[in-house]
Design a protein around this nucleic acid. Structure first.
Length: 420
RNA sequence: GCGGCCAUGGCGAAGUGGUUAACGCACCGGAUUGUGGCUCCGGCAUUCGUGGGUUCGAUUCCCACUGGUCGCCCCA
């Protein structure tokens, strides 16, 4: 075989793609109800947008970006996440000048150069939402609720929300100092990754999975104990609103998200149980709009990984209510019937029914088999005999019941039968 | 980016240093006249991820590459 799909990408084939459509439809429908509007931004942006937006020291920027130069010498990067692009668009299109808040969502592919694994692709897909312009903690909660509802609406009922506050530029330095003071005397016990995190980003040490680091940070200063007079009450209010919305959550003081732009609220959706992988996450980013060149305007949002949602659905054995099979398979016998079948098929389709026929020149039996394979609800049989009387046979494939009806009644017959 | 495991037809999967590469599923055709899901019969890999090497001879041994997969890192 000459050509192969690029590493870390996947073809979504019939049988699988229906699940995606279903999940995406749920996302769109929820967004409609929560009054979010879709935004579609380019799949690539100036490299610098992500460097600045996502953060120079993040893994994404340091080693995972698909960066290239175009023929005009411009440095471009395939978007590794959605927020930076949406913020850019928000600023560039001066949406900040309109009545706030601005509520946007997106669904689409993202790109990160990583080693592929289950639930990790180089081209993967995210559904994300962003709200700009409001500091209201109830909006943080609303967003968390929306994400949570998304999971439950597709059938993932055992999703846990993990919540934390990562503070703001006001209070973070104090916590950072306390954390460094606490850890420095014990730095021999840190793993090598965390040793370097000690100066670069000590907060990340808190969610290191290394056992020794975990033990060490058990008693370490927690960000939530250092929250300032803005962040503290904000965090409390988010929790209060989550309770009002009956979103089950758990405070995880170790959770620190990997992107630099988060302030205050940070959250993650994880699957309960042993696997417990992350299905999505998000948080507030009050400095990002300004960082990207806009006014000082706050934002909050989440992103969910669609691959992981589909994977979780498969693992949990969730049956999606997908429509399957055609409404009517038209069998024709003989040249004249075949000819009439062409327009008959169109009539069925015009009426909104899904209809198919044999184009492999199969005989009666073969056509029946084909109809069965396509899970046809009905088979319409048009042969010489029927043609003579201007009638047509209709067989209910589930019951086996068959009758002959007037040719013009076929569409109505099937449309009626489909309702029940 | 690092480490382990793996790579045979559309899918699943056996197999051997040497002139036919099991089997199951799927698919195609047939089992008297125009009827599916069951059964029966027949067909379906000049070829064993790619490229080198060892050998008289490799799908089977060695190496590299590519890809998959699991763990780590990180995340969606």
């Amino acid at each position: 075989m000459k050509f192969r799909i690029p590493r870390g990408t996947a073809d979504l084939l019939p049988g699988q793609v229906e699940k995606w459509q279903y999940v995406e439809e749920k996302a769109r429908e929820l967004c409609r109800r929560y009054h979010f509007s879709e935004v579609r931004t380019p799949l690539f942006e100036q490299t610098e947008l992500f460097q600045r937006g996502v953060g120079e020291t993040t893994d994404i920027v340091e080693k995972e970006m698909y960066t290239f130069e175009d023929r005009g010498g411009r440095k471009l990067t395939l978007r590794p996440e959605g927020t930076a692009s949406v913020v850019r668009s928000f600023v560039e299109n001066k949406m900040y000048a309109e009545p706030q808040p601005t509520k946007l969502y997106y669904i689409g592919p993202m790109f990160r150069y990583e080693r592929p694994q289950a639930g990790r692709q180089r081209q993967f897909h995210q559904y994300g939402v962003e709200v700009f312009g409001t500091l209201e903690p109830s909006v943080d909660a609303e967003i968390i609720d929306l994400g949570y509802r998304f999971y439950t609406s597709v059938g993932l009922t055992d999703v846990q929300v993990e919540l934390n506050s990562v503070g703001c530029p006001q209070c973070r330095p104090e916590h950072r100092a306390a954390l460094v003071d606490y850890l420095t005397p014990r730095k021999e016990e840190l793993c090598k990754d965390c040793l370097s995190r000690l100066d670069r980003n000590p907060m990340r040490i808190l969610d290191c999975k290394n056992e020794s680091c975990r033990r060490l940070t058990e008693e370490a200063p927690k960000m939530i104990d250092y929250l300032c007079h803005d962040c503290g009450p904000h965090f409390e209010a988010v929790q209060e609103n989550l309770k009002l919305l009956e979103v089950p959550f758990r405070i995880d003081t170790r959770m620190v998200r990997g992107l630099d732009y988060y302030t205050q609220t940070a959250f993650e959706y994880v699957l309960k149980g042993k696997g417990g992988g992350s299905l999505g996450g998000g948080g507030r980013y009050n400095g990002l709009v300004e960082e990207v060149g806009g006014p000082d305007m706050p934002g909050v949002g989440f992103a969910v990984g669609l691959e992981r949602v589909i994977l979780a659905l498969d693992e949990k054995g969730v049956e999606l209510p997908l429509q399957q099979g055609v409404d009517c398979f038209l069998i024709t016998l003989g040249a004249e019937a075949k000819k009439q079948g062409v327009t008959l098929l169109r009539k069925l389709r015009d009426a909104g029914l899904s209809a198919e026929r044999d184009t492999m020149d199969r005989k009666m039996k073969g056509q029946m088999k084909a109809a069965d394979r396509l899970k046809a609800s009905f088979v319409a049989i048009l042969g010489e005999n029927e043609l003579k009387e201007n009638r047509i046979g209709v067989k209910n494939m589930a019951t086996g019941h068959q009758e002959t009806i007037c040719l013009d009644k076929l569409v109505d017959y099937i449309r009626e039968a489909r309702k029940s």
